[in-house]
Write a protein that binds this DNA or RNA. Structure first.
Lengths: 251, 251
DNA sequence: GCATGGTTTTGATCTACGTCAAGGCGGCGA
DNA sequence: TCGCCGCCTTGACGTAGATCAAAACCATGC
């Protein structure tokens, strides 16, 4: 159990700016007390790429937020058909307070560090600290919007539009992680295998591969190796997604 | 503006048991004061079947919950492709606190009564009354789960499985509205046109019609008229959905 | 009764994507 | 250096569901 050691190694305030629980929210007393309290309910876990965090239906006695790396949420049918239902990036939250079992398979796609909270104490804190519910509500509403956008993609978009949408999403997130490099030539690695993309988009891996090749041939994207993408013209890519070009700013 | 009149016609406590705002939450003072306060921020609106409540992007200065009837949330692409992303039944909540514009088209599928709260005062109350955020969080998490189940359906199920799933969902909700009639022969009206079902399932209306005919021919469902369905054997129907038969009780 | 318009069914055909199968590429350990 | 194994690509072919088109159904008003 490396929880105490890890918590001391990396100051909490540094890694967990996006956690639903901030220092101040936990305890108004001195920093030392705070840390000592946090150490009893909060700990880090590391996973290697490909490792499963939990299986759907397994007991899950923590909630967590992603510190670094990428994880996926997926559902599988008895005959093996699989659908991803969420992509977890740094600062995203997993687990449902009040629910003792995982509802989805959670898998580390890259090396992954998660910041976990024991579920019981976390639920207690939610009761006593309204800001946690409020923050969680905001995050959940964002996820719901993302899920609904994804429903449009799954139900109505063509394979080419699906690929373009996924690449655009990854590009946007990547760009917002770096600085706000407006409409310049973007360049990044795809964090998912072709199979994972297929599971995400409701396609087969062959179709994913073919459509990526097609977008490459048409100059919408450039590929170096199999994973590294550069986007010469982001607007061109967005046109291929089938989405409104104005990006729909709703806040 | 029928807000005051309507509020008085039907006692609030009766229609709005499932509203995120309950009487007690609003005001601890006497019932009269409470009512008078509520009347300033809460009002009913009625819509005819087929009417649009708001269009995506329109200003929306209220949040609301469905009192009776059925509404749908949908997104449409520029070329007219349409995908439903939510089905609103009595007690379901629409609108996002903090967001001034609708993110989706909201349409009344049947005659509809909604209980609306002015957005500004509602947001104030959320700040002062933590139970509202907590309740809303629960509801949003449920919706997110439903959305994710729908993603599996859209991405991976066959047309026949999609139809069976939809019928099963409607049947279950109908059954839980009536009494808990366990695994008996169920009977109800489909609240959606074939086209609306198609938009919900990511299919065309022709495919919907064909698959309904097929399920009927195979004895999985019985049809009287075009809308009235009876399910002779619910388990048989569930087998056709492709879902785990154990229903996955997670809570 | 009959005309009207929205909904639903059914048929004939087309096509985007899935399926099956064969290689190619690139990293890693022996 | 070679061979292995996991990824990825590409081709040939099959099929579920889309598309196009016609007709049947059903409620409504005249």
């Amino acid at each position: 159990m490396p929880k105490v050691r890890t918590a001391q190694e990396t100051p909490l305030s540094q890694d967990c700016d996006n956690c639903p629980i901030r220092h101040r929210a936990v305890c108004a007393r001195c920093e030392a007390d705070e840390l000592r309290f946090l150490e009893t309910i909060k700990y880090y876990r590391r996973f290697d790429a490909g490792q499963t965090v939990v299986w759907s239906g397994d007991r899950m006695d923590f909630v967590a937020s992603v510190v670094s790396g990428i994880a996926t949420l997926s559902q599988t049918m008895e005959d093996g058909r699989r659908q991803m239902v969420g992509l977890l990036l740094p600062s995203d939250f997993v687990g449902r307070p009040g629910r003792p079992a995982a509802a989805y398979d959670v898998t580390a796609t890259s090396d992954l560090v998660m910041c976990c909270f024991r579920r019981g104490p976390f639920e207690d804190m939610m009761r006593t600290t309204p800001s946690i519910s409020q923050r969680l509500l905001e995050m959940t509403l964002d996820e719901l919007d993302a899920a609904r956008e994804w429903m449009l993609l799954l139900g109505r978009k063509t394979a080419r539009e699906k690929i373009a949408s996924l690449v655009a999403i990854i590009a946007r997130r990547d760009a917002s992680l770096k600085l706000h490099g407006r409409s310049q030539s973007l360049s990044f690695d795809l964090p998912l295998t072709r199979e994972a993309m297929a599971d995400y988009l409701g396609l087969t891996l062959e179709t994913v591969s073919r459509q990526i090749s097609a977008l490459k041939k048409d100059g919408v994207i450039q590929l170096t190796g199999q994973r590294h993408v550069t986007i010469p013209d982001f607007n061109r890519l967005v046109e291929e997604t089938g989405d409104d070009t104005d990006g729909g700013f709703l806040v």
